[in-house]
């Protein structure tokens, strides 16, 4: 069952990844990336890494893809296909880098073969409960400090985004 699910999700993730690279429209690329992130998040859940899965959805699928889309929309989503004068050169570099990265991944996987069946750390280390316990007991101080950081971020956003009204006497100068 798990294996079938994994194969299915892996195929979707692969399709998403290919979509990112192959589509001409940047918006389609960003949406394919979303598909890729979401299916990987489900794979994390399959591995009982609940926290990782949730973070994947919130941070990557949520925040980062939205950020991408924002940028794409800001600079104009419909810029059409790029003018490619040196398309072949870029492709060669890109394929070369991808191949090198693939080789690195395969090499590092081979290094740890045969894989042991024993999970790393406590079985429920990645569960929402365990993370919550750690966050509110052992890591309470940085957690609370993060609330200050958010406050600073909000204040800063208000200051920078607010329409500026200079003083009346300044305008007359």
């Amino acid at each position: 069952m798990t294996l079938i699910l994994f194969a299915f999700l892996a195929l979707i993730a692969l399709a998403g990844g290919l979509g990112v690279v192959l589509s001409r429209n940047p918006v389609h690329s960003a949406l394919s990336l979303l598909l890729n992130f979401a299916s990987i998040a489900v794979i994390y859940f399959l591995l009982h890494a609940q926290f990782l899965g949730v973070v994947q959805v919130i941070v990557y699928a949520g925040a980062i893809v939205v950020l991408f889309l924002f940028v794409v929309m800001l600079i104009g989503g419909n810029i059409g296909p790029y003018r490619h004068g040196s398309r072949t050169v870029t492709s060669v570099i890109a394929v070369g880098l991808a191949a090198a990265f693939l080789a690195l991944v395969v090499w590092s996987v081979v290094q740890v073969l045969p894989m042991s069946a024993t999970p790393v750390g406590a079985p429920d280390a990645g569960s929402v409960q365990a993370v919550g316990m750690a966050l509110y007991t052992d890591y309470l101080v940085p957690f609370e400090l993060a609330s200050l950081l958010l406050l600073v971020g909000m204040l800063g956003g208000v200051v920078l985004a607010r329409r500026y009204q200079p003083f009346a006497e300044d305008e007359t100068q």
Binding site: L145, A146, L149, V152, G153, L155, G156, V159, Y164, P166
Partner: peptide, 26 residues
């Protein structure tokens, strides 16, 4: 005396200073 706490404190002061640096909008 702990790296996460250190990092979050560093970010609090940095983010506040980024905004204060740009405070003179004119």
């Amino acid at each position: 005396t702990e790296l996460i706490t250190l990092f979050v404190s560093l970010e609090i002061l940095s983010v506040a200073l980024y905004v204060l640096t740009g405070f003179h909008r004119g």
